[in-house]
Design a protein around this nucleic acid. Sequence first.
DNA 1: CAGTCGTGGGC
DNA 2: TGCCCAAGACT
Length: 365
Amino acid sequence: MPEPANHPTSALLKWPATALLAWYDAHARDLPWRILPAAAKAGTKPDPYRIWLSEIMLQQTNVTTVRPYYEKFLTLFPNVQALAAAPDAQVMAAWAGLGYYSRARNLVKCARTLVADYHGEFPNTEAALLSLPGIGPYTAAAIAAIAFNQPAAPVDGNIERVLSRLYKLQTPMPALKAEVKQANAKLVPKDRPGDFAQAMMDLGATLCTPKRPNCLICPWREPCLARQAGIEETLPIRAPKKPKPERQGTVFWLENAKGHVLMARRPDKGLLGGMLVFPSKGWDAPNESQLPERLPGAMQNQWTPLKGEVVHVFTHFKLTLSIQAQTAPKGFRAPKGFQWVAPQDFAEEALPSVMTKIWKTVLLK
DNA sequence: CAGTCGTGGGC
DNA sequence: TGCCCAAGACT
């Protein structure tokens, strides 16, 4: 890889790490999964299970969103063995609302692999961690550094932003990541790799933010090349965004005499994989829940449109759903692949958010 | 490499 | 309001 035009000088390589760690010692965020520097100094060791769980939950997700889910998971599944032994449906229900549901499926898969092949212990090398389900380059390096104090150099969105500014790296994302990885590997202090990674993430989350960074009190205020050039807010350079297509579909609300509602479990792969949803059609062709066509002929034209649409924005498309309802006739059984669910069960935050919007529209409006 | 995969908060 | 963004992994 060619050296960047503003390749850091050797002087710049050394002392930024020291300055950042000093800042971290004084300002580290107190997070439920974190061992603060003072406690670490006193001999407290991180629990790899908790570090792993937090890292998976934090993928593309804010700390404030993760916190309650993390606490819930720790209560329900205090260790790898408990998680590995849990039924899939219980884990998916506990994850409901957090998004990116493949993370939850891989979480269970990983826990079961650890119990089956690793005596229930996490491997302590980056390479071995990388081989586990749901653990990619970032998470493998993060766990190695934070949980095992190995000289690994994770690069997440925060670190990419922070270092692109420190070294004024103007290569657009995603190619930028390779340059940041090189620079980062040279910076990592061998004695505190975990704290160094966490320090950069704290810096990115609290001071070196995407918009209006607070350079005034930043420990890297002086060496930061982007700030020197006055272009800190323009970095990192992102690829132009693509237009978000719109889809629309219909949700079918079928209620039986007990007041239970018909639902289906989505296939493991793809959108909302493994989650409980209301039957619908028209918007996700490969995974259509073929409900109406599988109903007795007498029911097929008994749908009544309900007032109100549900709009939900996914990562790569915007979805608008209308709702059709009817009450199932006596003796009607749930078709294969479908199940009746009592409203109190899906009200316990056990559904993906888009489906929570549906039942709230039906029952509360 | 580029597309897929959720959601909620901030502005 | 609509857009941007967040401790990425997988295909």
